[in-house]
Simulated scan of single mutants.
Amino acid sequence: MKNDYIVCVCGDASRAAYLIKGEKNVLFDAGMAYSADKMIKNIKRELGDRPLDAVLLSHSHYDHISGVPFLRKEWPDLVVYGSAYAKKILEKPSAKKTMRELSDAAAQGVGLTKAPDYRDEDLMVDKVVKEEDILDFGGHKITVFETPGHTKCSLSYMVDHDVIFASETVGVTTSEVYMPCYLVGYQMSLDAVEKLRHAGAKRIFITHVGILTPEDAGTALLPGLKKEEFSADRVWDYLEAGLKRTKDEIVEIIRKYPTEEEQLKIMLATYHKGVKQEEQPDFAFLLNAAATLKVIRRECMNDADPER
């Protein structure tokens, strides 16, 4: 959409920070620490002297929240929204330590010594939101949906029945492949797709990708879909099919390869094709893949595989 009110302002290639402009200005996710400076410059380019008023967190992973302390420094009145579970996680010293370690590893992955420093106390949720809450930001009303599956704390947000910012629970379409992202629940992820399908949004935002358009039909993002067939419902069909297909594929990977090391190697080759290290380092994907294997073993193989 030309002159859209939603703009990517991410400071790196991960596309994990989108500005929703209006009477009040809201950021969906906050990117990574190492690229926060550039993200802030991008936000200022869009807003000029106007402030950033709020951040909506989709979940508590480092690549979506580590920019928060730098945003607070720039805009002290900023309010950060997230789930109760995300708030609980970010209150744990162990979680804050892990965030720093992962942020430093991501920075090193792009050639930096470490991520820039920040105050741990600034990495927090200010206001807890839950299912069916409606946030009024003046020109925009944003509805909250709880969509666990990627994490327990995953949230999705719908802006004015126009765009739904789907959490990573529904998966990620890359330049090469659909990437499964169900780290805590496969059925939860199917349920999330069904819930968001019925929310009634006209456009769908996919994490790390952006708002899908008819031009994406027939490309690697939406293979097999014709441009003239493009619709929100067909996108949900694609995401649901991706969840089911990858579940079957991962079951076969587990059955075929006896060690987790081999399984992870195949997962990396299968689902991380075409992803640049600055978008998602291999180590981060492998952490997620290990969790996905556990979910599939627990939910889909306990009774189905006679050898287990």
Rank of each mutant, 00 (worst) to 15 (best):
L190V: 14
I142T: 01
H161A: 10
T246S: 15
A232Y: 03
H150C: 13
E299P: 07
A269T: 13
K41R: 12
I164M: 12
L212E: 02
A54F: 03
E194A: 15
G224Q: 09
Y34Q: 12
P51E: 04
A289C: 07
V110E: 00
E252C: 08
W75M: 04
L112S: 00
K96N: 03
R234K: 15
L112W: 03
V55Q: 01
R308L: 13
C181D: 07
A192F: 06
K273H: 00
M301C: 12
T207F: 00
I65S: 01
G218L: 05
D126Y: 01
K2C: 08
A86S: 12
D282A: 11
K273R: 11
D305P: 04
A106I: 00
R298D: 09
E132N: 15
A290H: 12
K24W: 06
Y81V: 01
H198E: 13
R50Q: 14
D303W: 11
Y182R: 05
R50W: 05
Q187V: 15
I43P: 05
F28V: 13
V193M: 03
H198T: 13
C8A: 13
I40D: 00
F285G: 04
K256F: 07
R308Q: 00
A30L: 01
F165Y: 13
A16S: 14
L90E: 05
K226M: 06
I40T: 06
T259P: 00
W75S: 07
P69Y: 04
D122T: 07
L293W: 07
S189R: 06
E91C: 09
M32R: 14
S94V: 10
I134H: 07
T213Q: 15
V144A: 01
R234M: 13
G242M: 08
Q108Y: 04
R255I: 03
V163K: 06
S60D: 10
I254Y: 04
F28Q: 05
K256E: 11
S156G: 06
D303N: 12
A201C: 10
A166K: 02
I253V: 15
L155N: 02
L286F: 09
H59K: 06
E279I: 13
E194Y: 08
E299H: 11
R255G: 01
K247Q: 09
R100S: 08
A199N: 06
P214D: 12
Y238E: 10
D122A: 04
V172E: 08
G22R: 02
D77S: 13
Q277V: 09
A241I: 00
S94A: 15
V177C: 07
E215M: 15
A166I: 05
V125C: 01
K276G: 09
G185Q: 00
R203F: 12
P214I: 12
G22M: 05
S156I: 03
G218V: 10
E279Y: 00
K88T: 10
R308W: 04
K114P: 00
K96Y: 01
G200D: 08
V275Y: 00
S175L: 09
E91R: 15
S189M: 06
V9G: 10
P258I: 11
N25P: 08
L19E: 03
Q280I: 12
R197N: 08
V159S: 11
K21H: 04
S94Q: 14
K41A: 09
S94F: 10
G82R: 03
